[in-house]
C-alpha cells in the first residue's frame, strides 16, 4: 500500500497549485512570479506522478521529465527577460511597468 493515496496526491497538488496561482496574482515582483510559476508546474507534475503510481504506468514519470524540461526553459527565458529589463536601467522589478520589450 502506498503512503499516499491518489486522493491525497490530488489534494496536495490542488493546494500547491492554488498557492502558486495566488502568488502569481498577488505578487508584482517578477522573480516571485517566476517562483510561483515553478510551484504551479510542480503541482501539475505531482498530479502526473500520482496518477502514474495509481495506475502503475511509467507515462506519469515520462510526463514529469517533460515538465521538468519545460520548467527549465521557462525559468531560463524568464530570468533572461528579467536581467534584460534590469540592465536597461529599470529601477524596479514590478511586472506592471514592463509591458514593452524592444528586442
Amino acid at each position: 500500500m502506498l503512503a499516499f493515496s491518489f486522493n491525497d496526491t490530488l489534494l496536495v497538488a490542488t493546494v500547491l497549485f492554488s498557492i502558486g496561482l495566488a502568488g502569481v496574482l498577488v505578487r508584482r515582483n517578477m522573480v516571485f512570479m517566476l517562483m510561483s510559476l515553478d510551484i504551479m508546474l510542480n503541482a501539475a507534475a505531482l498530479v502526473f506522478v500520482g496518477a502514474g503510481a495509481r495506475w502503475h504506468d511509467a507515462t506519469g514519470q515520462v510526463m514529469f521529465v517533460l515538465i521538468l524540461a519545460l520548467a527549465a526553459v521557462e525559468t531560463a527565458v524568464g530570468l533572461a527577460i528579467i536581467v534584460c529589463l534590469h540592465a536597461r536601467g529599470r529601477p524596479t522589478l514590478d511586472a506592471d511597468t514592463g509591458n514593452l520589450l524592444r528586442g
Binding site: F4, V49, I82, V83
Partner: peptide, 30 residues
Amino acid sequence: MLGASFAAMLEIIIYAGAIMVLFVFVIMML
C-alpha cells in the same frame, strides 16, 4: 512516497540544484 524515486532524484538534481542556482545567480546580479 509515491514510489517514483527516479522522479524524486530528478527533482532534487535539476530543480533544487540547477534551476535554484539560476535563481540565486540572477538575484545576485540584480
